[in-house]
Design a protein around this nucleic acid. Structure first.
Lengths: 234, 234
DNA sequence: CGTCTAATTGAACGAGATCAAGACAAGTGG
DNA sequence: CCACTTGTCTTGATCTCGTTCAATTAGACG
């Protein structure tokens, strides 16, 4: 909710409708696939706590993570219009999930046009984040990819109150990081060392410490515009 | 319309509403930026004819194309919920465009829930295509990226009746191709030569000829699942 | 015909991958 | 409480795919 409210007003009635739409809650351990590609879905999943990834695998075992999800993200709101996903979704850490049936969402599209537009917005925010990923893996250097991802996560976690004071929890492996950036874990390790040595940031023990926010942004060529942080009537 | 109708029924009334929403038409020459990042928008653009790209540039002049658009695609339906884009959109060939004001779209979200869901679907189809691009530039080899893009374009153009008989028009440069695949034009040229020599496909004079569809798919590890071609009530 | 951009090819280079091995931490079972 | 997995992190050595640099050819267009 905090994520939506940053971008537009959310009336009390709308908040009530949204809360009423949620059905059961669930806890899932780390490393579990929670949504498989190609399976027809009849509910959407909201991540309440933990860290989750959307990814695809190639035949030779290589994995590419499309997007890292943090608390407050809908993992598969895309499945409401699409009816199924073409990629997998899995937990990177133990997570808590809440489910929203497609029926309830359909009712929202019938009765709540403004709320519908906000949910639509939320799916397109994913798309914008994923486009930035295309730019990263397509054209940025290895060190810039990692720096950029860290800037992105700092802002996104800050929005939901999970970052601040130039630090945040990131309880994932360097392998996950490599799969997100389109690199090998060996090279990620070397680049993290370089970022540490140059005094830009440290990633250790599941925590990120940013030592020089300005320089980190410079290395990454980071601009938060793609996160559409502006508050507007939508 | 043909693109939407493949995925779900579109009633006559809905078709009428959609057609009525369109305002003026426009012709644009090749190589023109038609939408700039960060500019507030109050209309959406539908591509009627030609080829258009969404892209971002880095400071050193490198370009990354996020998605190639073909006739029938909304170029920036994303801008309706987002209100502005975070990337540029430009023509690769001379193109014809039709505009739809955001007001008209807002009215559709108020009165036409089913049509709204179809438009929502259309934006998420872009997102799915873009996710496949992440996988390509992140993990596929150069030759697989090109082969995959060709498979994708063949299917997408076929849907709107612009491909068939294992051939289609692709009036773009090898530079555009390189910017789409996250490669240099020099390397694209070499890989095209290899694809030609191995009897998989030819790209010459703005036309693609596919000589061995099966092998081309194998090289690309292509599966059309990400294009969500299934027809379903949405 | 000149001009401009795109396509093509060769040679040298380099960012990141691959291969390999050791260090370290966290279970897990006896 | 300790031996034994198992998985991640770390570092070094070597390799390779794709880049960079450079030069030539081919087309398109006024």
């Amino acid at each position: 909710l905090r994520k939506l409210r940053l971008r537009d007003d959310l009336s009390e009635a709308e908040e009530r409708v949204l809360r009423a739409s949620a059905s059961h809650e669930n806890e899932v351990p780390a490393g579990r696939t929670i949504i498989k590609a190609g399976i027809p879905l009849n509910q959407c999943t909201l991540l309440v706590e933990g860290m989750v990834a959307r990814y695809k695998d190639l035949a030779d075992g290589q994995r590419q993570i499309m997007e890292l999800h943090v608390a407050g993200d809908f993992l598969d709101l895309h499945s409401f219009p699409l009816k199924q996903l073409e990629h997998d979704v899995g937990t990177l850490t133990p997570s808590r999930l809440v489910f929203v049936p497609h029926d309830a969402l359909k009712r929202i599209t019938e009765d709540q046009p403004h709320l519908t537009r906000l949910l639509w917005f939320s799916t397109l925010l994913d798309a914008a984040i994923q486009r930035e990923r295309i730019l990263s893996v397509g054209r940025r250097t290895a060190i810039a990819r990692i720096a950029h991802l860290m800037c992105e996560l700092y802002i996104r976690l800050d929005v939901v109150g999970l970052a601040g004071d130039m630090r945040f929890q990131l309880p994932i492996t360097q392998i996950d990081l490599a799969d997100t950036c389109g690199l090998t874990s060996v090279h990620v390790n070397r680049m993290l060392k370089q970022l540490r040595n140059e005094g830009l940031m440290t990633f250790r023990g599941g925590e990120v410490l940013i030592h020089d926010w300005e320089k980190l942004q410079d290395v990454a060529e980071f601009s938060p515009a793609f996160l559409h942080l502006d508050r507007q009537p939508r």
